[in-house]
């Protein structure tokens, strides 16, 4: 049947004006987020490499940077910000929510402190 085309077949012809504009926008966001990520990574390195930040603060600081990094990666590099990713968003965030809650409660429950 003609409607069953191979979705992985190469595209033909030049892109439309609209597509060109979109591609340009995407290139810009990708570049900006790439620079941002390099900045975040170097911040993480500096906070440990130099003695400017005390260790007790450096660990949660790096964890926070890692969280930001993961979100940026998922949304800008792995295209979770695009249309048609509603279910992917729902599943990833509910999974993260359940995992965070469970791991958090578990750390609390097996800790030394009793309430």
């Amino acid at each position: 049947m003609s409607s069953h085309q191979d979705p992985s077949a190469p595209l033909q012809g030049a892109p439309s004006k609209n597509t060109e504009r979109k591609l340009k926008n995407e290139t810009r966001t990708q570049l900006i987020s790439f620079i941002l990520m390099i900045f975040i990574t170097s911040m993480a390195f500096i906070s440990i490499g130099s003695d400017a930040v005390p260790n007790g603060f450096a660990i949660p600081f790096i964890l926070m940077l890692a969280g930001v990094q993961v979100v940026l990666q998922l949304y800008f590099f792995m295209h979770m910000n695009e249309k048609g990713t509603g279910w992917i968003n729902v599943m990833i965030w509910s999974g993260l929510f359940v995992a965070a809650l469970t791991v958090g409660a578990l750390m609390f429950l097996i800790g030394e402190v009793k309430y």
Partner: peptide, 18 residues
């Protein structure tokens, strides 16, 4: 269903608040 697992462990000694 994910928020209640410790009710299998009430007698383990998690403490009254938990």
């Amino acid at each position: 269903g994910f928020m209640v697992w410790a009710h299998h462990m009430f007698t383990v000694g998690m403490g009254p608040v938990a």
